[in-house]
Amino acid sequence: MTKDHRYIYSNTGAVGIVDRPNQGAPKDKLFASVRVTHDDATESDMQKLITAYTESAASPKECTGKGRQTARKGA
């Protein structure tokens, strides 16, 4: 677990809290998780992966939906 308690990881998986500024009430947390099925990953690899994944998921484009195409009515 990281010192700030945002990430927990092992050599087979990891979970992290996605920081979503201005999104919902403070109690509404979004978690990201990753899992690997091969045995050559290390805890360090998983920490890097979950950190990059949660940072990417927290980007304004992903968190707010801006920049994504939406279905049009009647399409």
Rank of each mutant, 00 (worst) to 15 (best):
N11C: 09
S10D: 09
Q47N: 11
S33C: 11
S10I: 06
D45M: 01
K3W: 06
P26D: 05
M1V: 09
D19H: 07
D28G: 07
T37P: 01
R68Y: 13
Q23A: 09
M46Y: 03
R35D: 02
P21T: 14
S59A: 13
G16F: 04
I17A: 11
A75D: 15
T37R: 15
P21W: 06
K48A: 15
P21F: 13
L49N: 04
K3H: 11
K66N: 08
A41L: 07
D39V: 05
C63Q: 14
S44N: 01
C63R: 12
K48C: 04
H38R: 06
K27R: 04
D19N: 08
R6T: 07
K48R: 15
V34P: 02
S44A: 05
G13S: 14
S44K: 08
S33K: 06
T70I: 06
R72A: 12
Q69G: 12
I8A: 13
F31Y: 15
A58W: 01
R20K: 14
T42A: 00
P21S: 13
S59E: 14
G16I: 05
Y7E: 08
H5S: 04
N11I: 03
E62G: 00
D45F: 00
T37N: 11
V36Q: 03
Q69L: 09
A71F: 08
G24I: 03
P26T: 00
I50F: 05
V18F: 10
A57W: 02
Q47Y: 14
D39I: 03
E62C: 01
K27S: 09
K48Q: 14
S44D: 07
D39H: 14
E62I: 12
D4R: 09
S33Y: 00
A25E: 15
T54K: 03
C63G: 10
T42I: 04
K66Q: 11
G16N: 04
D4Q: 07
D39M: 13
K66I: 05
A41S: 10
A57G: 03
L30Y: 07
A75C: 12
P26Y: 00
Q47K: 13
A71T: 13
V36I: 14
A57H: 01
S10A: 08
D4A: 07
R72N: 11
T54E: 03
A41F: 15
D19M: 02
G65E: 01
G24E: 00
T12Q: 12
F31R: 08
R68L: 06
F31W: 10
S33Q: 09
Q23V: 12
E62A: 07
R68A: 08
K61H: 07
G65F: 04
R20V: 08
T64I: 04
S56G: 06
P60E: 07
Q69I: 08
L30H: 03
A71V: 15
A25C: 03
T51I: 06
R68K: 14
G16R: 02
V15T: 14
A25S: 10
T51R: 11
A14F: 02
I50K: 03
T12W: 11
D39Y: 15
K48G: 14
E62L: 05
A52S: 08
H5R: 15
A25K: 06
L49W: 04
G13E: 08
E55Q: 10
S10M: 10
F31Q: 05
E62V: 08
G24M: 04
A75F: 12
G16C: 11
R20Y: 03
